[in-house]
Design a protein around this nucleic acid. Structure first.
Length: 424
RNA sequence: GUGACCGUAGCUCAGCGGUUAGAGCACCAGGUUGUGGCCCUGGGGGUCGGGGGUUCGAAUCCCCUCGGUCACCCCA
């Protein structure tokens, strides 16, 4: 166990990153776009603790999943409680549902960091951030359609167009057990053909083997029957309705029978959005599915649910590749230059801001030249200059920074109204 | 968890056994006694990621370690 780093330079933990201005502006845009979209659809923001009793994830996500087996950040608090940082959003939201029992149908959205102890690489971090929604309390395939189409609409409204939607059905407690038995029987005869990781896991969770990307597993499972051909009639018609509904709304979904996903709670519909422009292996920019047994698994009454999570970092990588979501040019209107000590800038920016004008100033009594340089770089449209002359005359000089207009001097008391006019 | 490549100024990088470690950009000041962007001049900035070793001498070679990037697995 390492205790403390030996280097004197302190940096962010492995796989975790600072998002500085102006890059953070794009995060604000993404989050605002999402909130606007899902709130229009009746989802309400839910804020829940970053830490949960570790049982929330063990029982929720499934102790056989990779996320729980080897990727969780676990800790004990001073009272000896065994907690974990959330590795994804759904289990926590469902825990909150079980605790508070809101009226169904319950529609929640969230923004959360998610922690997974993995080796970082392009598009994969130990702390990433997810936007997501959960819809609890109905089996209606219309809910599936609403959820998936919302995610699709979100990408569209950001201008991200090169997106592929994959979809599958995991069946339910009626039809999945018999299919799993069938898989076990077929796979037990060819265990030795599977990859090292899955060779010994045929009995535990054979479905996961379908999702393995290793060549051995892909070959060994190539001729296996597909789950979607073994669905019970309820699941089959549910899946058919979801596909029809998505097509009806103009979202083309490609059935991928290997789309099992790593979280054990899924039933029936699962889906994933991948960014075609992302060359890296990590090109999934969103995904989710139905989890009709999860509320029960966490101690609540039998309640179906469906939701999705979208990774902000990968979304921004995809946006970069498509050349959308450019950084804004400026976040300020006016730069107040004071060369008589700084007290005039103090009152001027205060008054301008009070009236809704974005106004900044410099500190440390810099020279006129230095302050003009800062004003130019700030992207402000106008500089307000107060020197000894203006100070004496109780005036300010207004200088346009983006065009060659002659500057004007006006009474200080009229500045706010004048600037309002100039800025429209 | 496994593997590959890479760590020199705030950033991008040059230097790859031999004085006091450089460039471009960025930053600061001056040229212009009250006017930014362009230009010119000057300036501040470095435990050469860290530790150990080889050597008369190490940013340079070797070992370890930490960090970064990418890939596998899995996922957002």
């Amino acid at each position: 166990m390492k205790t403390e780093t030996t280097t004197t330079n302190l940096v962010a933990p492995v796989g975790m990153h600072d998002v500085l201005y102006p890059h953070s502006v794009r995060w604000e845009q993404v989050i605002a776009t999402f909130a606007n979209l899902v709130e229009r659809a009746g989802f309400g923001l839910v804020i829940s603790p970053l830490l949960e009793d570790i049982a929330v994830f063990n029982r929720g996500i499934g102790s056989e999943s990779d996320v729980v087996r080897k990727e969780m950040y676990e800790l004990s608090d001073r009272g000896g409680r065994h907690l974990a940082l959330r590795p994804e959003g759904t289990a926590s939201i469902v825990r909150a549902f079980v605790q508070h029992r809101p009226n169904i149908v319950w529609k929640a959205w969230y923004l959360t960091p998610a922690f997974r102890y993995e080796r970082p690489q392009a598009g994969r971090y130990r702390q990433h951030h997810q936007l997501g929604v959960e819809l609890l309390g109905t089996h209606d395939p219309e809910a599936d359609i609403e959820i998936i189409s919302l995610a699709g609409s979100f990408y569209r409204s950001l201008g991200i167009k090169k997106v592929k939607l994959s979809i599958n059905s995991m069946g339910d407690s009626q039809c999945r057990p018999s299919y799993i038995e069938l898989l076990k029987n077929l796979l037990s005869e060819r265990k030795e053909q599977l990859c090292k990781e899955h060779e010994h896991r045929v009995e535990l969770n054979p479905l996961r083997i379908l999702d393995c990307k290793r060549e051995e597993c892909i070959q060994a499972t190539a001729d296996l029957p597909h789950l979607i051909d073994h669905l019970c009639s309820d699941c089959a018609s549910h899946f058919a309705t979801v596909q029809e509904g998505l097509a009806d709304l103009g979202f083309e979904a490609e059935v991928n029978h290997r789309l099992v996903r790593g979280l054990d709670y899924y039933t029936r519909t699962t889906f994933e959005f991948s960014a075609l422009m992302l060359q890296s292996a990590q090109n999934a920019i969103g995904g989710g599915g139905r989890y009709d047994g999860l509320v029960e698994a966490l101690g609540g009454p039998p309640t179906p649910g469906i939701g999705f999570g979208i990774g902000i970092e990968r979304l921004l990588l995809a946006a970069d590749e498509e050349g959308v979501l450019p950084l804004p040019e400026s976040s300020t209107d006016v730069f107040v230059i004071d060369i008589v000590g700084g007290h005039r800038a103090r009152t001027l920016v205060h008054e301008l801001r009070t009236h809704g004008i974005r106004a900044i100033r410099s500190f440390d009594n810099r020279s006129l030249k230095a302050q003009l340089k800062l004003a130019n770089r700030s992207g402000a449209r106008f500089a307000l200059i107060v020197g000894p002359d203006e100070d004496r005359a109780e005036a300010v000089t207004i200088k346009a920074l983006r065009e060659d207009e002659s500057q004007v001097s006006i009474k200080a008391s009229l500045v706010t109204d004048y600037m309002k006019g100039l800025l429209g």
